[in-house]
Amino acid sequence: MSTATGSSTTLLGAEDRNLRRRRLTDRLMRLSATAAAGLAVAVLAIVVGSVLIKGASALSIPFLTQNPAVGLGAVGGGIANAIVGSALIVAVGTAMALPLGILIALYLTEFATPRTAPPIRLVLDLLNGTPTIVIGVFIFGLLVVSHSQTGFAASIALAIIMLPLMARTTQEMLLLVPGDLRNAAHALGVRRWRMILGIVLPSALGGILTGAILAIARAFGETAPLLLCDSVFGNTTTLNIFGTAIPNIPIDIYRYSESGFPSDHARAWGAALVLIALILVGNLSARAMLARQRRKLAGR
């Protein structure tokens, strides 16, 4: 093979049309990728910015503390009942999903065999991929059809939505707990359940809770199942979660957004601002905590 040519070496820095074209393509494509990232950030900024600007004009102390004025197109009043209601149904949903999610994650990391773990993981993935409106249809068929809409039905639907998210982050955190810790506990002759409850869970607790916050933030904004299970409600604040539908923020936004009255759009933006503030604060703090927790566990 006599391909090495001395002549080509002298060409360094010489004009080369092919190279110029390639360099141009390179620059163009890199610019496009950067622009795409910029576009995504811009969309986020525009959406959040719209909510901030349009929501701020609707926001006031009475908006947060009063119940709504009756009827579409009505002026005045607030969304106090919906804020209380959303908090209630999400809290009840979390009370069901969090313990169950932690138990499932414990099963997957501590008890499952290579044969039993994959089906459970698959089921969690499928649940996670199920459209939330279908989960609404499911709970409607299970609880609403024979009874009536209740806040509790909504809580169950939200719990099913949160469950795979919580199980997954918990599992991820449990896997980060160093094997040394387990070995140390084993070596002390501690029983397994004591080791799990005393060592494994506490050292992953921060991460589990931040994962839970992310799931809760998601549940707060979830609208589709509430539309079927918890959308026919009055204008008063109620805590009767088993008896009636409970007012909530997402359905308020949905209703008001579909209305033709400008005053309702203003209410929708105000409610959207409250919701997005809750969600962004939850997300940002959870992210910061999660990063810290990961560093703590991984850096041990």
Partner: peptide, 8 residues
């Protein structure tokens, strides 16, 4: 040198 492309 500044005008030399590493690709080249």
């Amino acid at each position: 040198e500044r005008n030399i492309d590493p690709v080249e």
